[in-house]
Design a protein around this nucleic acid. Structure first.
Length: 793
DNA sequence: CAGTGAGCGAGCTTCCGCTTGACTT
């Protein structure tokens, strides 16, 4: 039996450390927290100093009993969980749950997994820091109280199964408020003037822009007219050196942002792939808020840069963490071995690894050096000057390996690559230039961008809300609850004007562009808006953007021993609990109802509200003799912004479009989009076809095509039973047997499948499915959207 | 799978943070 038992949080970490410590040490993992508050309402006794009831969750029972046994026979138990609030609490829970004794338990901490760091930690053990533990308990209890008192208020006043919490509710609020900001936004037009000159020497051209913009078409046109007979001269030339420095190595949040921008990964995907890289020993821990690199890493990076690129490409840098509330229990995310520029693995693993490798290496490289030249061009007939800029790269430095992306490329509407960093042609002050052409293009100001998953994480981190381990789950939660959807939306056409001056003539044309198209952006749903407004109205303090920052300050004071954790909680809970009671008693049910006007046909009122199955339009009221008419809102429409006309249009469906094979065809919109119904079969409309415009011919064509496709899907129908067939599915061939879908075992040739095989598989499937099906069912319920869940009932 | 839109009121839902599996359909 080993003399020493050392417990860390992650099994991959345990494996690494075991290698450093030799055979006197047995290194085990706790797999994170081993205890949590019981799920019931008696978890916290609010009348009795917030005393907590903990339990070991079912999935942790095995590990706890194993650790208990090992701890008993060990001479010394080393608690080596992370050096932060949660880590300290994990050590405390271990101490309590495993029944450890003070005299042979040692608490050690290190924030990088390197041999020297571990050995040093072992030399300076300490005791559990109960102030830090108390700070964690305060955090845990506050989150439970907020979550488990607010959520039931929503069940009563809005809809069952909803949730609210310190983190998720603020995340939703950010999205709702951004959406409103965009809705309120009115684009302002202005005219940007760009000119192209011939330099006279050779054929080189010079592109220059007017720094100021014109507000009206008339002003822009006047400017161009004034330029018809003008002379153009280089008035001023300036050359300045400039530098760019590399970005800090990755934290969880910045990794999610860059993987989203450069690789198109969702935050969940990034974390899954990073987890695999971590477990394979390729990268350091992926849930971190630190930009720090260990000395070992700094040296390895230097060695790699010097040998691969040369001495002058290396510059050692230590970065400072900027984000609020950072706890820095780990290193930045970096490759374990800097000399491996790329790795084996699947496509996503290779790409993410390379991103991490490049970013980390670049962070230890020299600045890139540029020379920026600015030329001013005078116009003889006007006071304004054109400006041409050129940038030459003098030394690439870190740009040799890595270039950070930004979210808001094209923020000001420069949709052409006009600020291309190019060398200017040779110029001299006073030199005459010949105008080739000039264009004044109408451009529009832009609203703030909608959030992507990754840019929302960035914002949350800036506000100090959430932790590296919860960013991805939070983003999933607000989508699973139906508060937010990640979607693409089509843009709208917009007309803009281009005024040109060429060959002494000024002319104007109208052009069209697409504006407002979105890809994978977060949009609030009506239920998200409704819940947010309810929370803002009744629990302003909790959903305040500064709430977390404020309580974090108090947690820090507790951690430093300046404040009692129970005092802090009493001060918070008293007023909060009364708010909850007051809201339960007095607040109205929230439906977000809005009157739109009066139906011109029936004279009845038209209103929109959130109903049992989502947002709807209603003509008439429930009190009328005649039942009201209903229609669901369509994707992209919201209660807040739908117009009277759009609402009326929704009643144009379902609509008859004619007949086919003596049966009527109707077009309508269902949960899966627009469809044609014919002879009790359903045919989806292809994208881009407006259901209101579908003609009889088009409808027939769609039906015929779908039938052919279905026919092609069937590979074989068994003679013995036409309910048994082999079909081509999304994941290759499978067997459809009545209502059962059966997998074809690997290695089986499709031609060789007999009816007996099918019967055998069907038997096995129904036998094995009893246990399996239940887990599957709970899973779908969890992930299912509210509408689908309601239906299940 | 492609509807529905009132409500008897059972029994359920829910938080944030720390970790990894067993699932993909």
């Amino acid at each position: 039996m080993a003399k020493n038992l050392l417990i860390v949080e992650s099994p991959a970490k345990a494996k690494t450390i075991e290698g450093y410590l030799g055979k006197d040490f047995l290194v085990k993992s706790s797999y994170g927290h081993i205890r949590d508050l019981v799920k019931t309402d008696d978890a916290i006794d609010t009348d009795n100093n917030f005393q907590q009831k903990y339990e070991v969750p079912a999935d942790k029972k095995a590990i706890v009993s194993e650790l208990k046994k090992l701890a008993k026979s060990a001479e010394t138990v080393w608690l080596a969980s992370d050096e932060d609030r949660e880590g300290e609490a994990i050590s405390w829970h271990l101490f309590e749950t495993l029944g450890l004794k003070d005299e042979n338990t040692k608490r050690i901490v290190f924030h990088e997994i390197t041999k020297p760091a571990i050995l040093k930690a072992i030399e300076s053990p300490r005791k559990i820091d109960y102030n830090l533990v108390n700070a964690q308990q305060a955090r845990r209890v506050l989150d439970r109280l907020v979550g488990f008192e607010l959520s039931p208020v929503l069940w009563k006043k809005v809809k069952p199964s909803l949730s609210a919490g310190r983190v998720q509710s603020v995340a939703v609020r950010l999205i709702v408020e951004r959406e409103r900001e965009i809705n309120r936004f009115e684009a302002e037009a202005s005219y940007k003037v760009v000119a192209i000159f011939n330099t006279g020497k050779g054929k080189e051209q010079l592109k220059a822009e007017l720094p100021q913009r014109f507000q009206t078409s008339a002003e822009a046109e006047q400017f161009l007219k004034d330029c018809v007979s003008a002379n153009f001269k280089v008035g001023n030339l300036e050359t300045k050196p400039s530098k760019r420095t590399p970005a800090a190595p990755f934290t969880t949040s910045t990794l999610q942002q860059e993987a989203s921008r450069k690789l198109g990964f969702s935050v969940a995907r990034t974390m899954q792939v990073a987890q695999r890289l971590y477990e394979a020993g390729r990268i350091t821990y992926m849930r971190t808020d630190s930009v720090n690199l260990s000395d070992t890493a700094l040296q390895a990076a230097r060695a790699e840069i010097t040998s691969a690129y040369g001495d002058h490409y290396h510059k050692q840098r230590q970065y400072r963490t900027k984000s609020a509330g950072a706890q820095e229990a780990h290193e930045a995310i970096r490759p374990t071995y800097f000399n491996e520029h790329s790795i084996e693995g699947d496509n996503s693993e290779r790409r993410l690894y390379e991103l991490i490798w490049k970013r980390s290496i670049a962070s230890q490289m020299s600045e890139a050096e540029f020379e920026k030249t600015t030329a001013k061009i005078n116009v003889s007939t006007r006071s304004e000057d054109f400006v041409a800029t050129g940038e030459v790269l003098k030394f690439d430095g870190f740009l040799k390996v890595y270039m950070e992306s930004t979210d808001d490329e094209d923020q000001e509407g420069f949709d052409d690559a006009d600020s291309d960093n190019k060398l200017l042609p040779p110029l001299s002050v006073g030199q005459d230039l010949q105008l080739k052409n000039m264009q004044a293009t109408e451009r529009f100001s832009r609203a703030s961008a909608r959030f992507t998953e990754a840019s929302l994480v960035k914002k949350l981190e800036e506000l100090g809300i959430g932790r590296p381990s919860t960013y991805a789950p939070t983003i999933s939660t607000i989508q699973n609850r139906g508060y937010v959807v990640k979607e693409d939306r089509d843009g709208k056409e917009r007309i803009y004007e281009v005024i040109s001056l060429e060959n002494g003539l000024v002319s104007s044309v109208k052009k069209t562009e697409i504006t407002g198209a979105e890809r994978s952006k977060l949009f609030p749903t009506d239920i998200g808006v409704l819940v947010n407004d309810f929370l803002v109205q009744h629990f302003k303090d909790i959903v305040d953007y500064n709430f977390t920052a404020t309580v974090e300050k108090e947690f820090d004071e507790i951690a430093q021993g300046y404040k009692e954790w129970t005092d802090m909680l009493s001060n918070f809970y008293g007023p909060f609990h009364s708010e909850v009671q007051d809201t339960l008693e007095n607040a109205d049910r929230a439906t977000h109802e809005r009157e739109l006007g009066v139906d011109p046909v029936s004279g009845k009122p038209i209103s929109v509200r959130v109903g049992r199955f989502g947002p709807l339009v209603q003509i008439g009221s429930a009190d009328d003799e005649e039942k009201p008419r209903f229609a669901s809102l369509r994707k992209g429409q919201m209660i807040e912004t739908i117009t009277f006309e759009e609402a009326l249009d929704l009643f144009n469906l379902p609509k008859k479009v004619g007949a086919f094979e003596e049966k009527e065809m109707t077009v309508a919109i269902g949960r899966f989009g627009p469809y044609i119904r014919h002879n009790s079969s359903f045919y989806s409309l292809p994208k881009g076809v407006d259901p209101l415009d579908v003609t009889e011919e088009q409808a027939i064509e769609i039906i015929v095509e779908k039938r052919q496709k279905d026919k092609d899907k069937i590979i074989r129908v068994f003679e013995e039973n036409d309910e048994a067939r082999i079909e081509n599915g999304r994941w290759g061939p499978f067997v459809r047997f009545g209502k059962q879908n059966l997998k074809i075992p690997k290695g089986t040739e499709v031609e060789n499948i007999s009816y007996a095989d099918v019967l055998k598989w069907a038997e096995e499937d129904s036998k094995g499915s009893t246990g399996k099906k239940t887990t599957r069912a709970t899973k779908t319920t969890k992930a299912a959207k509210p509408a689908a869940r309601a239906k299940k009932k």
